[in-house]
């Protein structure tokens, strides 16, 4: 297996290899992915049911649009850590594919480091927004006056574990680089 360009998720047989990916984190990422799947299925089911009841009984689910918007947060933000664990983010490899294995390790570190720094402000902003809507007891205008915090919480959690995974990845990359350097001494 080409350890440097691995696109495997934490499910793959060699996910607990000697690079030492923390198991608790992999489990947590799978959990978040499962919640995301549930959110996607719930969106599909809610919209379909709403069409059926509207067409046949003249009745619409209260606040179905707001619920779908909230489910969107769970659907598309929560799997980000899982995606990151598999290094599955979209990138341009044309200029770097012929570089040496040592250079590839450096590039891995650069990616994870830039990513972590980029995401920190988003996480912090998400934290401010979450505490903001929590303290304000903010809610959506609608039939049910649904609170705003669940979507904000999903957003905050999704991005927090995104960063955690990136930091872990950076540390792993540094370790791999050290092992590589020792081997080539």
């Amino acid at each position: 297996m080409d350890a440097l360009r691995s696109a495997d998720g934490p499910d793959s047989p060699d996910s607990q290899d000697m690079t030492g990916r923390p198991l608790w984190l992999a489990g947590l990422e799978r959990g978040l992915l499962t919640i995301s799947v549930i959110c996607i299925l719930a969106m599909g089911a809610l919209i379909t049911l709403n069409i059926l009841t509207r067409t046949f009984f003249g009745w619409s689910f209260p606040d179905s649009v707001i619920i779908v918007r909230e489910l969107m947060m769970g659907a598309v933000v929560l799997p980000l850590a899982y995606v990151t664990a598999g290094r599955a983010h979209i990138m341009v490899e044309v200029f770097t594919s012929r570089m040496s294995p040592g250079a590839q390790l450096w590039l891995n570190i650069l990616s994870s480091a830039v990513g972590s720094l980029t995401l920190l402000p988003i996480v912090y902003g998400g934290y401010l927004d979450l505490t903001g809507v929590w303290e304000d007891e903010a809610y959506f205008f609608g039939d049910l006056g649904l609170p705003e915090w669940p979507g904000r919480l999903a957003f905050f959690l999704g991005y927090t574990f995104f960063v955690v995974r990136l930091v872990v990845l950076t540390l792993q990359d540094v370790r791999e680089l050290m092992i590589f350097k020792n081997k080539n001494k």
Binding site: H89, I90, M91, V92, E93, F95, T96, L107, L110, S111, V114, G115, L117, T118, L119, I122
Partner: peptide, 14 residues
Amino acid sequence: LIALRVPIGFALAG
């Protein structure tokens, strides 16, 4: 950064 295969999202957002 993009040329150095930093994920495009990270580069744009950063």
